[in-house]
């Protein structure tokens, strides 16, 4: 990695952080838990990195570590999105009743 790419990455990181602050501010307390578990699922994006490092043709330490990382991150992604949906469904059900 060159310094130039590092700077580009930093730009992306800082700007995305600002977007995050703007988008998520003012979320009502009712939705804090689903928001957190939804965001949590998104942090499982590490699965992309895991796929990239475990994609090599031959078995070696990198691939093994990557394989474990794929499993961990996928649990995070799939579990996170599904449990968030389950919670939001409870809110929904009750609104329809009210």
């Amino acid at each position: 990695m060159t310094t130039a790419t590092l700077i580009t990455c930093l730009f992306v990181f800082v700007l995305a952080s600002f977007v995050g602050f703007e988008v998520i501010n003012k979320v009502p307390p009712t939705l804090h838990t689903p928001l957190m578990s939804g965001a949590n699922a998104i942090s499982g994006i590490a699965v992309l990195g895991a796929i990239l490092v475990s994609g090599a043709k031959d078995w070696n330490l990198t691939v093994i570590l990557g394989f474990i990382a794929v499993i961990l991150a996928t649990i995070n992604v799939v579990g996170g999105f599904l449990v968030t949906d389950r919670m939001l469904l409870m809110f929904k059900k009750k609104e329809a009743k009210a």
């Binding site: 990695m1 790419t5 590092l6 990455c9 992306v12 990181f13 800082v14 995305a16 952080s17 600002f18 977007v19 995050g20 602050f21 988008v23 998520i24 501010n25 979320v27 928001l35 957190m36 965001a39 949590n40 998104i42 942090s43 499982g44 994006i45 590490a46 992309l48 990195g49 990239l52 490092v53």
Partner: peptide, 26 residues
């Protein structure tokens, strides 16, 4: 996740990681 994005030089990880980082901080 964002740090991992820097490691493998992948914008997707950096953006998603930053979004989650911000929401957790709020």
């Amino acid at each position: 996740a964002a740090a991992a994005g820097f490691v493998v030089n992948n914008n997707m990880l950096i953006i998603a990681g930053a979004l989650v980082g911000a929401s957790g901080l709020i």
